[in-house]
Simulated assay, not measured.
Amino acid sequence: MSDPSYLKLDRLTLAYGDTVAVKDLNLSIGKGELVALLGPSGCGKTTTMRAIAGLLTPASGKINLDGADITRVSANKRAIGLVFQSYALFPHLTVYENVAFGLRLKGMRGNDLDARVGAGLKSVGLANFSGRKPGELSGGQQQRVALARSMVMEPKVLLLDEPLSNLDARLRLEMRTELQRVQKETGVTMIFVTHDQVEALALADRIIVMLNGGIEQIGTPEDIYNRPISAFVADFVGFENVFALENGRLKTANGAVTLSTPAPSSAAGLAWRPRAVTLGSGPFQGTVRGTSFAGNSREYLLDTPLGPIKAEVDAAAAVHAMGSTLAFDLPVAAAASLAKYG
């Protein structure tokens, strides 16, 4: 069984001058895991990645990798690869020379170099592109070159900064598959930073949701998607109807509201995805203020005494006109129960 604490951050505090970006962060990542650091801008995810890479010295705390304290080890001696958001390829060098660059710095030459570079390019499907320059490649191909350049160095951990953000929708899907394939085939521990919950849910074995320099929730994609523990996480992964509870009743701008069935006594809040809202029947009423066609579904924005409610129904269902009044319900059984709110 692999070490669940292969990479361990112990009470890590990171700062830029007097501004603390991450405070007392504790995190353990297992060998061979594919992990996402997910959160909005300013949450501390990129700062944490920079500290792991050795590009930022911690104010306090420790970073341990494979049983060794690397907190003060220089970046070039950490056996950690980093794929930048911009790829950072040398435009005047061929694909071969880009991938070979780090190996040459380590003194590798001749047949050993050719074999390592060739294997790296083959692993990302670019064996026939070694003579091209980066400007002759698509964005997805450039991403693969950057990945191969890091992988040939045989890193203990590979870090990726917003790896898919520069690609169009089709290429993002293609590169998701490619990253998963390379990671599973090589077994490298991979950590990627993203603000895109869809990307994190699709790629990661485990997701670390960050907020205000700390960890809000850790879990599998299924945990994060179906069982958010806080209002922030719920909103971030698409529960667009999020309410605090007050004595088992929904807390709204117009006062407490009783639900059709009792809320869990332990819950601090409840959250519903638009699809979970019952539209056309129920104890509440709202006025249609917005509607949009979304392919297989139709989305509605209702103006209600509870506040704005977003609902989603099958596209084949009857269309409700702007300004019409609709009954609706928020079934407790379809809600995510939040352990904390605010």
Score class of each variant (00 low, 15 high):
residue 299 E to Q: 08
residue 51 A to R: 11
residue 240 E to M: 15
residue 103 L to I: 07
residue 304 T to A: 08
residue 30 G to M: 06
residue 63 I to W: 13
residue 86 S to R: 11
residue 253 A to P: 10
residue 39 G to M: 00
residue 220 T to F: 03
residue 110 G to K: 02
residue 59 A to V: 15
residue 117 V to H: 03
residue 237 V to S: 04
residue 218 I to F: 02
residue 257 V to S: 12
residue 293 F to N: 03
residue 109 R to N: 08
residue 220 T to Y: 01
residue 14 L to G: 05
residue 283 P to E: 02
residue 163 P to R: 06
residue 339 A to M: 11
residue 279 L to V: 10
residue 280 G to D: 06
residue 308 P to H: 13
residue 257 V to D: 11
residue 250 L to I: 14
residue 201 L to H: 00
residue 81 G to E: 04
residue 262 P to T: 03
residue 22 V to H: 03
residue 274 P to H: 14
residue 74 S to N: 01
residue 83 V to C: 06
residue 180 Q to A: 15
residue 134 P to L: 12
residue 141 Q to P: 10
residue 338 L to M: 09
residue 174 E to L: 15
residue 164 L to G: 13
residue 24 D to C: 12
residue 1 M to R: 13
residue 271 A to Q: 06
residue 238 G to A: 12
residue 23 K to N: 14
residue 294 A to V: 12
residue 135 G to M: 09
residue 1 M to P: 14
residue 113 L to R: 07
residue 230 S to C: 07
residue 141 Q to S: 12
residue 139 G to L: 01
residue 317 A to F: 13
residue 170 R to G: 01
residue 232 F to V: 06
residue 336 A to W: 02
residue 161 D to Y: 09
residue 109 R to Q: 13
residue 249 R to A: 15
residue 302 L to E: 02
residue 266 S to R: 14
residue 26 N to K: 03
residue 159 L to I: 03
residue 71 T to D: 04
residue 308 P to T: 10
residue 250 L to M: 10
residue 290 G to T: 00
residue 23 K to P: 08
residue 168 D to S: 08
residue 37 L to C: 05
residue 242 V to G: 01
residue 204 A to T: 12
residue 122 K to D: 14
residue 115 A to Y: 06
residue 158 L to Q: 01
residue 286 G to V: 02
residue 81 G to L: 04
residue 234 A to S: 01
residue 101 F to W: 05
residue 301 L to M: 14
residue 226 N to H: 15
residue 5 S to L: 03
residue 158 L to A: 01
residue 147 L to F: 11
residue 159 L to M: 04
residue 302 L to Q: 00
residue 285 Q to N: 15
residue 321 A to P: 08
residue 299 E to A: 12
residue 5 S to G: 02
residue 326 L to F: 06
residue 119 A to V: 05
residue 91 P to G: 08
residue 312 E to G: 03
residue 13 T to Q: 10
residue 35 V to D: 00
residue 302 L to A: 00
residue 164 L to W: 09
residue 285 Q to F: 14
residue 325 T to Q: 15
residue 311 A to Y: 08
residue 78 R to Q: 06
residue 312 E to N: 13
residue 114 D to W: 10
residue 69 D to V: 06
residue 295 G to H: 09
residue 145 V to M: 09
residue 65 L to G: 07
residue 184 K to G: 09
residue 82 L to F: 14
residue 63 I to D: 12
residue 288 V to H: 07
residue 232 F to Q: 00
residue 134 P to H: 15
residue 54 G to M: 12
residue 100 A to N: 07
residue 54 G to A: 07
residue 243 F to T: 11
residue 224 I to K: 09
residue 67 G to K: 12
residue 301 L to T: 10
residue 73 V to F: 00
residue 198 V to G: 12
residue 272 W to H: 05
residue 236 F to T: 04
residue 42 G to K: 11
residue 317 A to M: 14
residue 199 E to F: 00
residue 195 H to D: 06
residue 320 H to S: 08
residue 159 L to T: 01
residue 198 V to C: 07
residue 93 L to M: 15
residue 118 G to R: 04
residue 138 S to M: 15
residue 196 D to Y: 10
residue 209 V to N: 02
residue 181 R to P: 12
residue 30 G to E: 08
residue 47 T to L: 04
residue 167 L to K: 07
residue 29 I to W: 02
residue 27 L to E: 05
residue 284 F to W: 05
residue 230 S to Q: 08
residue 209 V to A: 01
residue 8 K to N: 12
residue 336 A to R: 04
residue 110 G to H: 03
residue 148 A to R: 06
residue 17 G to M: 04
residue 199 E to M: 02
residue 88 A to M: 08
residue 139 G to K: 06
